[in-house]
Write a protein that binds this DNA or RNA. Structure first.
Lengths: 126, 126
DNA sequence: CTTGACCTTGTCACCGGCGTCAAGCTTTAC
DNA sequence: GTAAAGCTTGACGCCGGTGACAAGGTCAAG
């Protein structure tokens, strides 16, 4: 299939696919007229990339998963390198959560300091 | 004082100060030779900006605080507009925390799905 | 033959907060 | 007198993941 069909099937723009190729995540055969040619395995790969990006992974983060799929594994996350990325991302998210919690209390403290009484009424807005 | 001294006293680069001016956060008198001239109130303003940025405020977020200081208040956070920004930022942080928590469980779910057993050993890395 | 849908490469734009360099002035220190 | 430090404006670069546009090649349907 050509780029437009792959894009439709994977739910991305052709522009994004060319970018992924430029970044070395997907490859393409070229037909005689220069058009990119893809097959089913590319659909799988792009789908995997999108799934990872939807939970905050970068393209570089996704690379080990793509390699894992290419090396024949049915799941992109079952290779040691992918597992390492999973662990790293989880740790990263945990760190971000901690940072945000710390930041929240700093903001609340500054707020209370600058405007005593303002904070007494509402909290969290959840 | 000139830009270098203000920069040193406020703990920022001269480049940052020119940027703040370009964004309309600080103003400068010019001496005869074209050099920017500042006084103590500018030290106070830049310090306020830095304090806000250190807890994740953008320059636009800081603007009401600067205006508040300029209008004679001893604290930049005591004006209604600043209070509104405080509340907005707290709500924003709360939202980000919720998003990250949701993301964390999505990543953990994908991880568990892709590599059953991998997640059993450690969690959180805290 | 022509229209229109699809493809190609290449480039600029975005967002935030500057860093960094260029090219030229002024002031300060010795 | 001169070199170093400090000042000026202007402009490009960064980071991530595209969107949007330009200027063209290709191919199927009418």
């Amino acid at each position: 299939m050509r780029i437009g069909e792959l894009a439709r099937r994977a739910g991305v723009s052709p522009r994004a696919l060319r970018y992924y190729e430029q970044r070395g995540l997907i490859r393409s055969r070229r037909s005689a007229n220069g058009y990119r040619e893809y097959d089913e395995s590319d659909v799988r790969i792009v789908t995997e990339i999108r799934e990872l990006m939807s939970v905050g992974f970068t393209l570089d983060d996704a690379r080990p998963f793509v390699d894992c799929l290419r090396s024949g594994h049915s799941s992109g996350g079952s290779c040691p390198e992918s597992v390492a990325v999973y662990r790293r991302k989880l740790a990263e998210i945990d760190r971000q959560i901690r940072d945000l919690l710390a930041r929240r209390s700093e903001v609340a403290a500054q707020f209370a300091d600058a405007c005593p009484g303002c904070l007494l009424t509402r909290r969290g807005e959840s």
